[in-house]
Design a protein around this nucleic acid. Sequence first.
DNA 1: GTCTATAGGGAGATAGAC
DNA 2: GTCTATCTCCCTATAGAC
Lengths: 192, 192
Amino acid sequence: MTATRRSDTKSEILDIAERYWLRQGYNGFSYQHIAQDLGVKSAAIHYHFPAKGDLGVALVERMRRRFVRWAERTDAEIVGFWPRFDAFVAIYEAYLDDGKKLCPSGILDAEYHTIPEGMQEAAHGLTTAILRWLTRALRAGREAGEVSFNGEPEGAAIVVGATLQGAVQIARSLGRDAFHTTVEHLKKLLHP
Amino acid sequence: MTATRRSDTKSEILDIAERYWLRQGYNGFSYQHIAQDLGVKSAAIHYHFPAKGDLGVALVERMRRRFVRWAERTDAEIVGFWPRFDAFVAIYEAYLDDGKKLCPSGILDAEYHTIPEGMQEAAHGLTTAILRWLTRALRAGREAGEVSFNGEPEGAAIVVGATLQGAVQIARSLGRDAFHTTVEHLKKLLHP
DNA sequence: GTCTATAGGGAGATAGAC
DNA sequence: GTCTATCTCCCTATAGAC
């Protein structure tokens, strides 16, 4: 019985932890929450992740890898700036609809001064990966005449990233509509 | 000696708590942190704010009152959309430069699911006050031909609010420049 | 890989003296 | 208004049995 599960207990822990993390923040859950959901004792979690910081770093790194894979697949399969933009927005929409989660960057930035150093570094890596993809997408989109903005694509990328990060947060108290309103207006601002 | 301080101990507590709050979040400080900075015992804080939730609500309400006063003063003293916009941005800039604080809305939204109910309601009030002012400023600015956007001013207001909220967060890991880049690009997007 | 047991600390909060 | 003392609970983490 245990054997069936043993091999991927580690990723099960990550799955459960990720749920709590994106909803309540890194400081908003404990090993006991995870252990209870998993049906084991909290001490058992320490076998897989000795310190909570190890779990935190693993969560962020997994997010980064997941995003990089998403970006590769999107670039390969989806053509045109606006379809790609919509696919990107859909990531945030999924967070919002799945229990009012936040995007990982938003959580990480908000708790920045209280998380372990390793997590801060991993957070930087995640943010950078996201902004790099956005920059590439915006640059290609402008060259194709699909999108309009002044200045460097790097700057426009931060605007898009910051706006979506803020929008998914504001939607927590103002509701889903606030998110969609923000996205619609952002799109209008970027249209040529 | 105590008499000199006694009358405004309550606001001293709020001042100290606010510093911790905007830097580390509501769950990132305790009565002991405040008590130590104030030179008293943590039990003494409970006299002024029986439960931590009372302190939390007081922090948010004070922020809202402060913003409303700021808005009245700004509307009376500063003329024109862009000067008002810059004054608004300066609020966030001050957060960033004063120890990489976040804007209160950003903290409140991020910790939304872990803060007391009273704080959630107060958070809603604060966000609403900010968006109402932005909406008024944007509407008047468009009527005067100073700013350009499509659709309702309410929607553009959320975009501006969300972008600044996100920008001040991203600046925690990417640095001050990321904030200013975002603001510059946002301004370009809104220029007629 | 999971268990029990437990250490050690910090949290929020209360009672009652001064 | 501030103190000491104390309670209770939960947290992270470790040691060692199974």
